[in-house]
């Protein structure tokens, strides 16, 4: 910890060893900031990224010079697909604390890859375009665009959530659940993801559209196979072998009939 007045390193006493300023309150603020950082770190380790963001942002509100908190916040943003937010945090971290800062290395790795940066920017523009489509009521276009976004950046949690929301509106609860599972894989315990999942589960339990379960009073069965949804008649029997044999027998019978009536001549049609 450092003195807010002169910047000297503090010791265990309640006053600064250099300028003798009262540093009790400062020490408490820094302690709170460090505790919030520890909480954020613990949450990040178990993939509760939304919770980690809240703790780390609060930690920085107490002490903006908490380098570890700011760098971790950048990492969490990056993991959630919010790369520009991540870059912003690392740039700020590097400008506040230029020496011995891991943020320099993070920035160097990203900024050295222009192709990645360009792809990232395009993905962001597409996501923003998608939001515009949604607000204009062009949900079909939004779904098409958003599918491209999440295929390019599958860790973009809000992209997966928005796509799930669009599927929920179209009552495609199975597809929505798939997106939400992808989002939950990145960010567990995200409230929006949990809310949407609950909605999907309720509808799938009630036998909503695309439930994938057999319905006793319907004539079709719907299930997923990879990325496809298969709909087939409930009573479906595969009897192609039997039909092949029957076809052969019918063909043979027709052939014999042709032989009898066309090749074997009748007695009245003799050479005389």
């Amino acid at each position: 910890m450092f003195c807010y007045n002169c910047g000297a390193q503090l010791d265990s006493t309640d006053t600064c060893p250099n300028c003798e300023a009262d540093v009790r309150v400062i020490k408490k603020i820094q302690a709170v900031s460090n505790r919030l950082y520890n909480d954020g770190l613990a949450k990040a380790k178990v993939r509760n990224l939304s919770g980690a963001i809240d703790d780390l942002k609060l930690s920085l509100r107490y002490n903006k010079m908490n380098m570890d908190a700011r760098n971790l916040l950048g990492l969490v943003y990056f993991e959630m697909g919010e790369a520009v937010d991540a870059l912003s945090e690392w740039v700020i971290s590097k400008s506040l604390i230029p020496d011995d800062n891991p943020a320099s290395e993070y920035l160097r790795k990203i900024q050295s890859n222009n192709v990645y940066l360009e792809k990232l920017n395009q993905t962001i523009k597409k996501f923003n375009q998608t939001l515009l489509y949604c607000r204009q009521g062009n949900e079909d276009l939004a779904v098409i665009q958003l599918k491209k976004v999440v295929s390019e950046n599958p860790k973009l949690v809000k992209g997966q959530q928005l796509l799930a929301l669009l599927y929920i509106k179209e009552e495609k609860y199975d597809l929505a659940k798939k997106c939400l599972k992808a989002a939950a894989k990145v960010d567990k315990n995200n409230i929006t993801t949990m809310t949407y999942l609950q909605e999907c589960s309720e509808h799938l339990k009630d036998g909503g559209k695309g439930s994938g379960k057999e319905k006793g009073d319907k004539d079709t069965v719907t299930y997923e196979s990879g990325n496809d949804i298969i709909i087939r008649p409930r009573r479906f029997k595969d009897n192609t072998t039997l039909m092949s044999v029957v076809n052969i027998l019918v063909g043979a019978a027709i052939g014999i009939a042709v032989v009898c009536f066309l090749v074997i001549r009748s007695p009245s049609a003799g050479p005389e």
Partner: peptide
């Protein structure tokens, strides 16, 4: 639900966002 979704920041907007950010903390 749609109202809760905000546009993501593009790379070109990052510079302005950083400069305009309020960096005041409890220490300040």
């Amino acid at each position: 639900e749609l109202k809760k979704y905000k546009p993501s920041m593009e790379i070109e907007e990052a510079e302005d966002a950083i400069y305009n950010r309020d960096m005041t903390d409890m220490m300040d």
